[in-house]
Amino acid sequence: MDSAPLTLGQTLRLGLIGLFVFFGIWLLLPTAGLVPPSFLPSPIAVAERVATLTTEPFAGATLPAHIAYSFTRFIAGFALAALIGIPLGLMMGWFRLVDEIVSPIFDGLRFIAPIAWVPFAALWFGTGIGGPVMIIFAGAFPPCVINAYRGARQVDRRLVEAAEMLGTGHFRMIVDILLPASVPSLVAGLRVAAGLGWQSLVGAELIVASTGVGFMMVQAQANVATSTVMAGMVAIGIVGLAIDMALRWTEASIRRHRGLDG
């Protein structure tokens, strides 16, 4: 295995090569007439479409407005998943009894893909805010629980003992030891949860929503507005990347603060 670490310059250069080849092929296929533009619009056409969509509404709203709808749902579902999932996971990892009671149910449910909740989401909450939020929740909840659980299980025994000999009671042990000790795990879990939540969201909007990037894309597909579909995909990619980068940055700065990485 070739495992020598790459320098920053090398990483950048290789990344650029990858992007260049990718866009080169994408540009070449429709412009050289290898595939019809209605099948695969060129990157230039997509970029233009993104630009027009910022001012010109499609399916009831402009692209930024659709993104805002999607993002609001995402935040709602994600926050709900974190607020319920993290405490639940921590308690499962910390208290044996909770683990024994909750784990079987949780292990069964978590293999149901977020998208599989769509029929229930539609039935219970309709196409308003509730349906998509429930599906994002279904995507983001398991990683929150699992990482919180792991975080709680991996709390350094020595730190718990140190706290015990300093006379720490149950409440403070949870707030001042368990919680901060599992923060790196929790943030790692939030990152995975955000990724899955965002992915599930668009899936959900394809079916149960009347606004949002996903909704815009189905409408465009019905109208064979391929470049609009792709504009939606670009938006999803960019917003997803931005969410991931923000959480990655948070994670890195926490680890640095703790002295976990150089």
């Binding site: 020595r158 730190l159 140190a162 706290a163 030891i177 703790r258 002295g259």
Partner: peptide, 9 residues
Amino acid sequence: FQQFALFPW
């Protein structure tokens, strides 16, 4: 403790 066991945060 031998390994100090200070709270890193």
